[in-house]
Simulated scan of single mutants.
Amino acid sequence: MPATVKIWDPFVRIFHWSLVASFAVAWLTAGELKNMHEVAGYAAGVLVASRLVWGLVGSRYARFTQFIRSPGQTIGYASDVLARREARYLGHNPMGAVMIVWLLLAMSVVAITGWLQTTDAFWGIEWVQETHDISANLMLILVALHVFGVIFSSVRHSENLVRAMLTGRKAAAEAGDVS
């Protein structure tokens, strides 16, 4: 059995799967079960806020400074992917980092506009509802791209990234890997 290392701490893993669940529940209850939809939306908002804090003070691979790369590095990585010569990253790769930023941003917009619709000041305001709906639909596109990226990277590097997000462990670094 190959050596493994702990990458994803319990907070990151619990956050990830809890956000998956809260978004799924909110999506599936939209327009049908208002109370459950709102609770799921509030949960998603709290989760995102918590993850933003953990991205500043959390464990090594949870920190934004560890995985968010410059635009040049990200474009270089994307070019390497197209050329099929990309490095394996122990944490998030540069394109995965871009996806995380987009997912957190879109989920924040969904949660904030959902909350705004419950306030007296913004209840019934069309642009708030439209922004909520558009950002929720954007989340579906981002989730699909995220799942595709996970499958693609798992195949390219012979590594089960879903299992890694469940156990927190990945294969130890080898020559050429980025830790």
Results as ranks from 00 to 15, higher is better:
143 V>I: 15
79 S>T: 11
8 W>N: 07
32 E>P: 00
41 G>H: 08
116 L>M: 14
94 P>E: 07
51 R>S: 08
79 S>G: 09
6 K>M: 11
130 E>G: 00
4 T>W: 09
77 Y>M: 04
63 R>W: 01
7 I>P: 00
161 L>D: 13
34 K>Q: 13
43 A>V: 15
58 G>Q: 06
148 F>V: 11
87 A>G: 04
65 T>A: 14
169 R>P: 00
1 M>H: 12
97 A>Q: 09
81 V>A: 10
10 P>I: 08
72 G>M: 08
72 G>T: 08
159 E>F: 02
151 I>W: 13
88 R>N: 10
42 Y>R: 08
21 A>Q: 05
26 A>G: 11
122 F>N: 11
119 T>D: 02
36 M>L: 15
11 F>N: 08
152 F>A: 09
61 Y>F: 15
169 R>A: 07
14 I>R: 08
116 L>Q: 08
98 V>C: 03
6 K>F: 05
117 Q>G: 15
123 W>H: 15
129 Q>N: 13
141 I>P: 00
139 M>G: 12
99 M>C: 02
39 V>F: 12
169 R>T: 09
83 A>N: 12
161 L>M: 14
59 S>V: 03
53 V>K: 01
107 M>R: 00
126 E>R: 13
133 D>H: 13
94 P>I: 08
166 L>Y: 07
15 F>I: 08
68 I>E: 03
175 A>T: 12
102 W>R: 00
58 G>W: 02
24 A>H: 06
119 T>A: 04
172 A>I: 04
139 M>V: 15
115 W>T: 10
131 T>H: 01
170 K>L: 02
71 P>I: 04
33 L>E: 12
150 V>I: 15
45 G>A: 10
64 F>R: 12
167 T>C: 05
81 V>I: 15
164 A>E: 12
14 I>A: 13
79 S>P: 00
7 I>F: 03
62 A>F: 01
58 G>P: 10
25 V>C: 05
17 W>P: 02
96 G>D: 09
127 W>T: 13
13 R>E: 03
67 F>T: 05
169 R>I: 00
148 F>Q: 05
47 L>E: 05
125 I>W: 04
12 V>R: 05
123 W>N: 15
124 G>P: 09
31 G>R: 09
81 V>Q: 12
51 R>I: 09
5 V>M: 12
81 V>W: 13
100 I>R: 00
64 F>Q: 05
35 N>P: 00
24 A>I: 14
42 Y>V: 08
128 V>Y: 00
129 Q>Y: 11
92 H>K: 11
96 G>N: 09
178 V>H: 11
62 A>H: 08
87 A>F: 01
88 R>Q: 08
40 A>S: 13
154 S>L: 07
135 S>C: 14
35 N>Y: 00
160 N>C: 04
125 I>G: 02
104 L>K: 10
122 F>E: 10
151 I>L: 15
9 D>M: 06
149 G>N: 08
10 P>G: 07
154 S>I: 04
11 F>M: 10
19 L>I: 13
36 M>A: 15
151 I>R: 01
5 V>F: 03
149 G>A: 14
52 L>E: 01
